[in-house]
């Protein structure tokens, strides 16, 4: 209750940080994941309609549609040089797409159930994936072989990613556990768990890998110091009870946290004060996927079935620069 009071107070005080700028139409079913390319020029989106779409991040123009999966796609990830895109699908495979040629170059098979999350390591020679078969798998990208199968969780794995130097993997699952793994040996090094054991939706390392940001289905996002197993920040007031919503850090000079919400909005919190800075309103369904631009103040949001437009929100400064271009 107290938090909500704080939130409304702050949003009325400050003028909006982000303005709706572009609306990208093309997907025919729920959009599951959004990712900006490492250089920020392209936005990739994937959906239950089994395709990946690539958009110009500044103009919203559609660049390419990649199809090949037999089932819906749950997650996508860029390699660090932006040359490849990996996609995780309900057809139990991960596909790697060459951006240069615009074709599928590899299919990784091994998961025995839906693949739900995928990410590259910083050198992009390894991929990590997690899925409904409750395992976390590490793949050799160039050869397309599975290097490690970690019997990681006792429920579907909802999110996996590497830290900034590629020595650690963090995974989280519907069993409510967040585990940290050593990439070299495949050993579990740490387990974080909140007292109430809520289902975990999404996890990622902070840019310096000192913390992990965890979304849980008790409508809370927590920032954990995993060395000390202490929760150092909590972000709330959004609604997250049913779906695996993405949350992410900003990469521009303004430090904030962005997440979707089941009340058809996206929320932006100040990293330090934990107050809601702005809610992005306009979507007509649950906002599932959000992404932040690697250098500029740009946020992409997308939602489920009833609203198939991807929205791009530009920061105050970036609205001006875009108009002059």
């Amino acid at each position: 209750m107290k938090d909500e009071a704080l939130a409304s107070a702050s949003s009325s005080q400050q003028s909006a940080l982000f303005y709706p700028r572009l609306s990208l139409n093309g997907h025919t079913r729920s959009i599951s994941s959004l990712k900006f390319s490492p250089d920020g020029s392209t936005l990739a989106s994937s959906g239950a309609d089994r395709v990946i779409k690539l958009w110009d991040a500044y103009t919203g123009e559609i660049l390419r549609t990649l199809s090949g999966h037999d089932q819906g796609i749950s997650d996508i990830a860029w390699s660090s040089d932006g040359e490849f895109l990996a996609s995780a699908s309900d057809d139990k495979t991960i596909k790697i797409w060459s951006m240069d040629k615009g074709v599928e170059v590899k299919t990784l098979t091994g998961h025995t159930n839906f693949v739900f999350a995928v990410n590259y390591n910083p050198h992009s020679n390894l991929l990590v994936s997690g899925g409904f078969d409750e395992t976390v798998r590490v793949w050799d990208v160039a050869r397309g072989t599975c290097l490690k199968v970690l019997p990681a969780h006792s429920d579907p794995v909802t999110s996996v990613s590497f830290n900034h130097d590629g020595t650690l993997i963090v995974s989280c699952a519907m069993d409510g556990l967040i585990r940290i793994w050593d990439v070299d040996s495949g050993q579990c090094l740490k387990t974080l768990v909140d007292d109430d054991n809520p289902i975990c939706s999404h996890v990622e390392f902070s840019p310096n890998s000192k913390f992990v940001l965890v979304s849980t289905q008790d409508s809370t996002i927590r920032l954990w110091n995993y060395q000390t197993s202490r929760c150092v920040k909590t972000y709330s007031s959004h609604v997250n009870r049913t779906y695996c919503l993405f949350s992410c850090f900003s990469h521009s000079k303004h430090k904030y946290i962005v997440s979707g919400s089941e009340d058809h909005k996206a929320y932006i919190w100040d990293l330090q004060t934990r107050q809601v800075l702005q809610t992005l309103e306009g979507h007509r369904d649950v906002v599932l996927a959000v992404a932040t631009h690697p250098t500029k103040d740009i946020i992409a949001t997308s939602s489920m079935e009833k609203d198939l437009a991807i929205r791009l929100w530009f920061g105050k400064d970036d609205v001006v620069t875009q108009k002059t271009q």
Binding site: P207, N208, S209, K210, F211, K233, K255, L271, Q272
Partner: peptide, 15 residues
């Protein structure tokens, strides 16, 4: 109150 403390997400700790 404890969460008021500032966190630094960018400084990489010495390995």
């Amino acid at each position: 109150k404890a969460e008021e403390e500032e966190v630094d997400l960018d400084a990489v700790p010495d390995d």
